[in-house]
Design a protein around this nucleic acid. Sequence first.
DNA 1: CACCTGATGTCAGTCGCTGTCATCGCGTAG
DNA 2: CTACGCGATGACAGCGACTGACATCAGGTG
Lengths: 190, 190
Amino acid sequence: MGRWEPNACGRLAQAALELFGERGYEQTTVAEIAQRAGLTERTYFRHYPDKGEVMFAKAGALQERLVAAVEGAPESAAPIDAVAAGLDALAREFDGRGEHRERQAVIAANPELRERELTKFAAMAAALAVALRGRGVAELPATLAAEAGITVFKVGFGRWLAAPGDRELSVVLRESLAELKAVTCGAGAS
Amino acid sequence: MGRWEPNACGRLAQAALELFGERGYEQTTVAEIAQRAGLTERTYFRHYPDKGEVMFAKAGALQERLVAAVEGAPESAAPIDAVAAGLDALAREFDGRGEHRERQAVIAANPELRERELTKFAAMAAALAVALRGRGVAELPATLAAEAGITVFKVGFGRWLAAPGDRELSVVLRESLAELKAVTCGAGAS
DNA sequence: CACCTGATGTCAGTCGCTGTCATCGCGTAG
DNA sequence: CTACGCGATGACAGCGACTGACATCAGGTG
């Protein structure tokens, strides 16, 4: 057993989620987060670059999943179908566990965290575009397909969170993608 | 003539743009911006809510233009065509004047400003969705069409800025929208 | 046993941002 | 004409996010 309790990162994330949920993001200081985790403010900033990043620790892994799914899609698949495969992979990350809801509630309640979330989505879109380019897709369609895919995820994820029923995320995402196709191509499906 | 020089807002914006361009965003303090404008730091925060907002003073007007164009589109127009009309209106705001380039260069050089820019785009997308709903479009297609339209603007605007030639922004946007349609609907136009 | 390493604590300092009060010129009611 | 209110600004104190520098203390390694 080491000199310090293990998993400092995780304890900080847990403490932050609790405190943000209890008092709100702005009303919580980094020193308080660190104290609840049994650490000091300075140590917090050794694990996370700023106050908000603690809420997005898993974003990197999510992005890797997305890219891997796109890279693993059949070569014959059109760009938009490769994107759809990536969305399916993302959906699998979220279905079942309900721990996201309080996390999303905290993010939704604070403009600064929502802003940060947008940059995480932007990073996912950029990575998705790179993955598509790796499949031989040209720059412009790769970027647009990637942005469209992330848009579908954003919108679908929001609907899935707001929905009282327990429809699977993958279903909601497929529905949203279909609606996007309908609306962009003029076949008004609503 | 008043006790103070007029147009404090504008002087602050000008000073900020200059200093951010000269030394970079992070290396510039709000006190320095205020000093160059002949004011104090405290007064800066009476005109802008935070350090970064000074770079986005015109965002509100731009959003109003977009919404007005969508509301003014013919009733018979499909959602995506109303969005296209909005994009055209945005393009008219940018064609001709070259003052955006240094502004965009400053934004592009700093992650915090890029993050802020994303929220401005998100606000435009939200307003666009509201405008579409006002035309009788249902929630899901309105949101998706709005997000798709803003995506087209983001991507097209980036290409327009990067392009050495002087193609009109409206043309680039139309091209990007067409490519989005192609990529979402499976007709690979590469 | 001495040394190095890595995670942490401690302290001082900068800067973004806010609340509070004072200042000052201008317009206006009386 | 004067006194008063008003609006924009300055001056000052203070909080909290974030950083750099240095000390501390386990455990592993020679």
